[in-house]
Design a protein around this nucleic acid. Structure first.
Lengths: 182, 182
DNA sequence: GGATGGGTGTACAGATCTGTTTCTTTTTAT
DNA sequence: ATAAAAAGAAACAGATCTGTACACCCATCC
């Protein structure tokens, strides 16, 4: 099996886009870091924008299937099933090169300058909210609470960039417990 | 009173940095939009980094004094005093060129590439958390809830970039009410 | 045993970005 | 009124960025 150039490019690009940002990461850097020739990059992706879109789309699908798998495992477990994504935040925030939520970072950088990219970020968040909505519904909680859980989830990722994530996660977990069990 | 060039530059820069991002906003654009000559810009600010720092510092002070003034007005009003900053989010999220939280955007773009800017964003968040901590304490609530309120506040700003802010704010307000009144 | 397709390497075009230089003009203070 | 300070205009240096052109390598397949 030959080295899958396309995947390697997307891996490198995703890491750099996430860590350093989209505008700050040049094509040359992705080329140098991945070791793939620039010609090859432009044979696989029509432009930097196309690469960004491909990276975000793949990342979104990865997150979705991971969350869905976990939700599958915890089906019927009530509160535990709702809390699971928040418990995972501990690990996410502790990762090397952690830099918040990739989709929020993309939304911020391309809010008004690149509608397709911004739309992709919005779609990811939409999916997240609907996912939480369904989870809450299936476990017998008020599904409208998805409108609280989503900001809280994103807020923890956001605050953990500049502060200790541990107390934020801890307070969020106990708050969710208190709110849903009434 | 002559047009204060320095303030005009910072006004223009802040608007562009906020709307389009820091890396995406060039000096030339700030120059053109403000009408101030580039020579003058570099007479007031040693570099783009220095301009960014000045803009963030000024914005942080503006936010702080605004929140403190409001807190002063609502002294002793209990829950209402805690909720006030969250109620203001309605207006903030509806503004033209709204793009989340300026300090989080800065933290994301400069997380690993520019420690001074990242530190300034961290200091702003630190202040916010301590401010909420003090508010909670003064009104007789558990001050540790600041570790919940801060992510929630930032999360609403973050989610409102790609979704309707109204239900997020509404759910947050009722959640805070429910959590603190126990 | 060539043709084909994917990959490499390098140089380059053209745009843009930060920051500087030089010179002129306007404003302000004494 | 005149000196000094502030601002303006425009060109430019040097770096970097996206994207392309061109020549070459090398495996696989027919």
């Amino acid at each position: 099996m030959p080295a899958p150039r396309r995947e390697l490019l997307m891996d490198t690009a995703e890491q750099l886009f996430y860590r350093d940002g989209f505008h700050a990461t040049g094509i040359d850097r992705i080329q140098a870091e991945s070791g793939v020739a620039k010609t090859t990059l432009y044979k696989h992706f029509a432009s930097k924008d196309a690469l960004i879109l491909a990276v975000l789309e793949r990342a979104s699908m990865r997150v979705r299937s991971s969350l869905q798998q976990q939700a599958q495992r915890l089906r019927g477990k009530g509160l535990e099933r709702i809390l699971a994504p928040f418990e995972d935040l501990q690990g996410v925030c502790g990762e090397d090169d952690f830099n918040g939520c990739l989709f929020n970072n993309a939304a911020a950088e391309f809010m008004y300058s690149n509608p397709p990219i911004h739309a992709l970020a919005r779609e990811h968040m939409d999916w997240m909210r609907q996912f939480l909505h369904q989870l809450l519904e299936e476990e017998g909680f008020d599904p409208q609470q998805a409108w609280l859980l989503l900001p809280l989830y994103e807020g923890v990722l956001t605050v953990a960039r500049v502060q200790d994530s541990e107390p934020a996660i801890k307070q969020s977990l106990t708050a969710i417990r208190a709110l849903l069990q009434t």
